[in-house]
């Protein structure tokens, strides 16, 4: 479904992503894990077109999307929940959700209903200004907003960042729900244990390079991973 082939991304002179290739197949949950500054966010930004790779290509459903303008990608079925949520803080919850459906002709009532089923809290607070939501609620809003356009592939950048353990579990179970209704998922996480547990496959990133890959189970059991990311 999504194929990244030989990506190299620079911030000025900093070579942040080095010869990265990976693939997400239809119906999978794939994780990118790695320490702070490994380049996970950079990769997602490159897929979304906010950054450009100097080499290689990105294909989505057999179309080369390497040079498509970012705002046109949503229409191809690709949706991105950015790191740090980036909800529109001065707009209401409902308006944020409407922006998620910007690429559609109109806001589909069924999509809205589904978001409210997944996140009942958002329905209670639909007229509240997003800036006044708690961090966890903002994460729910960011995810709800991203699925308003019925994406085929959902990219999540550290959805569990800064959340309490209960909320982390809740977010992960919602990711599984979304996956079970047919959404393919590319997940970036620091919480390697939880991410590997729900992933079909995963890639491990270290200073801009993919150093390991395998099924979620294989990686969760690998000694290297246990030492580096799972605390023993």
């Amino acid at each position: 479904m999504l194929k990244a082939d030989d990506l190299n991304v620079y911030y000025g002179k900093i070579h942040a992503i080095k010869n990265v290739s990976f693939e997400v197949k239809n119906g999978e949950i794939v994780s990118l894990i790695g320490a702070n500054g490994a380049g996970k966010t950079t990769i997602l930004h490159t897929i979304s077109g906010l950054l450009r790779s100097t080499t290689g290509s990105i294909t989505f459903e057999d179309k080369n999307i390497s040079h498509i303008e970012p705002h046109k990608l949503v229409r191809h079925g690709l949706s991105h929940v950015p790191e740090g949520r980036h909800v529109f803080l001065q707009m209401t919850v409902l308006e944020n959700l409407e922006m998620g459906a910007y690429s559609m002709k109109k806001v589909s009532p069924s999509a809205l209903k589904r978001v409210y089923e997944l996140f009942p809290r958002l329905e209670e607070r639909k007229n509240q200004i997003a800036g006044t939501l708690s961090g966890g609620e903002q994460q729910m809003l960011a995810m709800g907003r991203a699925i308003m356009c019925h994406p085929k592939l959902l990219m999540l950048d550290e959805p569990s960042m800064g959340l309490s353990p209960i909320l982390v579990d809740q977010i992960f179970s919602i990711i599984k729900d979304l996956h079970s209704v047919g959404t393919t998922i590319l997940l970036v996480e620091q919480n390697a244990g939880k991410a590997l547990a729900i992933s079909d496959r995963a890639y491990v990133l270290e200073s801009g390079r993919i150093v390991l890959s395998g099924t979620g189970k294989e990686l969760a059991e690998s000694e290297e991973i246990k030492k580096a990311y799972l605390g023993g």
């Binding site: 906010l50 991105h80 922006m99 907003r145």
Partner: peptide, 9 residues
């Protein structure tokens, strides 16, 4: 950036 990700030109 977030607006772009929503599909806004």
């Amino acid at each position: 950036d977030a607006a772009m990700l929503m599909g806004i030109n």
